[in-house]
Design a protein around this nucleic acid. Structure first.
Lengths: 246, 246
DNA sequence: ATGCCTTTGTGAATACGCGCACAAAGTGAC
DNA sequence: GTCACTTTGTGCGCGTATTCACAAAGGCAT
């Protein structure tokens, strides 16, 4: 962390911990749910339960935005929705392009959670000639050649990459060169980008693998029958595959 | 403490940090990539670069699995692939059911990353009569009424929930009652489950919101024109919306 | 106004994760 | 065998995150 960021840390609005930022959207969702049900105020205990976190953590998170609660009462739902939205930058629209219109790209194009949070999809792009021209979620798929035009023309600042793994880095380089400074990557590769560009990754199979790890643990862990034979074999022992399958 | 004692403690003691577990799939992917290119050994520096992490962190992560490297040489790719796979529980098959066959469910059903890692999809289920019976990714969509049959019949241990938000908790309760102990949730709700059941969440719009936060920061942060008027207004000030739009 | 009750905001303690830097361990040349 | 070189495995310090626990603050009844 730079000294500059450090200096601003005490003041609400800057220096919000990354862990807190990651939870704000969860709080926001819980709050909009309460709002729709006509709830006017909520205590940290109730909101924390709805968001699935510890109430002290919730209060500390919110305290980073400022003192928006009333002791003895709780938080005003509508006001908190506004403050969190503002902090997250959702009081303005963000223009998004989706590159790669396979199964996942289609799902993303039709995903309601984007539009409802101020994310406007400016274009769907693909390299496959048989997909270009198709109408998906009310939009016509455009050829990847038009990438730079669309980014510049619509002021796209966030690119969603849903291409095959092999194409992702190339696409990423192009969108960054065209001025995009935030990338949401669904392709199973590690993207490298210059400083100043943010990348977030969503990998469906990684989440499943983490679940498998814990699932295995519940069932007795990896040190079962197999590892007695193979687990402590020294590096260079080539027969481990056969051993575990024997 | 000797390295050997240390290894026994970690391997026997389930001491693998959650942060490490979350990175193992990334290492595994990088390693299989190297394997396909015929690379036999790799140094922590090279592998770390491929995985996008610090090399010391990589070495520490791998040390939790045991001492599988050779000083002065590096790690044997094939052996490491096997050890990580074993630790993650990927040397056995996991049976998965996908509930909710909307856009996202379809994308998941066709996602290659599942099958290639030992995750077998035993069924696609939906409540919508017009979807039931459709053929998707080589499977016939079944009615949600058959949920319990399918879970018991195929030994499903992991459920993937891709339903609308409103249906997710109900589906979750049913799959848990039917014996599922791991849930991957794509619905934008916080699921509550009994102890012993793991839930992981993937939320597409949360990732975008986090990007928006950083994007806004690059552009000057939320403390711009608006917040000078409204940002520090006390709770109870009702005119904040008008203020920010004025 | 006073006192009781509720709930926030936060200091303090603890746990966790990260990365530097280096000793230990292994390889290969001669 | 010995020496130079490479790379692992990890001790250590530092910063961040989480949780507890409580004083301070506000509401409300009387």
């Amino acid at each position: 962390m730079t000294p500059r960021q450090n200096r601003q840390r005490d003041r609400a609005g800057r220096g919000i911990p990354e862990a807190t930022v990651a939870r704000l959207p969860v709080y926001l969702r819980a709050l909009t749910g309460l709002q729709e049900r006509g709830v006017a105020t909520v205590s940290s205990e109730e909101l924390a339960a709805a968001a699935g976190v510890n109430s002290a953590k919730l209060r500390k998170d919110l305290s980073h935005l400022g003192s928006y609660g009333t002791r003895g009462v709780g938080y005003e739902v509508e006001y908190l929705v506004y403050q969190i939205s503002r902090e997250l930058g959702l009081t303005q629209d963000w223009v998004v392009a989706i590159i790669g219109v396979g199964n996942l790209g289609r799902a993303l194009a039709g995903y309601g959670g984007f539009a409802s949070r101020g994310f406007r999809v400016a274009g769907l792009l693909d390299a496959d000639e048989s997909i270009v021209g198709q109408e998906i979620a009310g939009m016509t798929v455009q050829h990847i050649d038009r990438l730079e035009d669309i980014i510049a023309g619509h002021g796209v600042s966030i690119a969603v990459i849903a291409t095959p793994a092999g194409a992702a880095q190339g696409v990423c380089d192009r969108v960054v060169a065209a001025g995009v400074t935030s990338v949401l990557n669904f392709a199973p590769v590690v993207l490298s980008v210059p400083d100043g560009v943010d990348v977030r990754k969503v990998d469906l199979s990684i989440e499943l693998q983490i679940l498998a790890f814990h699932e295995q643990r519940k069932a007795g862990g990896p040190d079962g029958l197999a590892s007695l034979a193979a687990g402590d074999a020294p590096p260079g022992a080539k027969q481990y595959v056969e051993t575990v399958e024997a």
